[in-house]
Amino acid sequence: MIRLEHVTKTYPKASRPSLDNVDVSIDKGDFVFFIGPSGSGKSTIIKLLLREVTPTRGRVVVNNRDVGTMRSWKIPNFRRSIGCVFQDFRLLPNRTAYENVAFALEVIGKSRGVARRVVPEVLELVGLGGKEHRYPHELSGGEQQRVAVARAFVNRPLTLLADEPTGNLDPDTSIEIMRLLDRINRTGTTVVMVTHDSNIVNQMRRRVIEIESGRVVRDQPRGVYG
């Protein structure tokens, strides 16, 4: 469950707000696309949901927690309930696929034993069985993004945020990543994806929220890129 209530976000020194009175509600288990041109404020939504920034006005509620007023020492625990995938993968280059996923578990205090049990499972799920010990530079872009998805999902988050996850991938690979996100969504995980990939949006036929100049201009249940 995610709610943006009359959210306005103005960055310091910006002449106009990145988000202007945005009012959006996303139910648990939803799959939502945020679309819109560059600079429309889509990525600010991801940053707000991750509590990388706080709203200037309005309330941001994620998994029943008011993110805007959250104390900074509570942020780490909050982020454990959210998985993140980015356009640039953000993998550690000196660690293998297995180690990249295990790292995410270990730094939040899970034991090696847990990692040994869970990581191969999730790598299998994203279709990287047999490639556990490859380094990122030995994997294709699509495979690297699968590692990133595995890392985001290994902790079984309530919400998966994806900021242009197919931005660096060719159309076929993009579709494979989308199938993966769709499967994760079917496990009950809420998926919020920011994109301007019209093919993907048109094929998936999921809820589409279009942002322009910081305002919601369209909110369609089974929308297309338009």
């Binding site: 991750l50 280059p93 730094v107 939040i108 902790n155």
Partner: peptide, 17 residues
């Protein structure tokens, strides 16, 4: 910085970072 950004992203506690 890469490690740190991943740690913050997945919710490693501040003292651990």
């Amino acid at each position: 910085r890469r490690e740190v950004s991943v740690m913050k992203m997945v919710g490693a506690s501040n003292w651990f970072v």
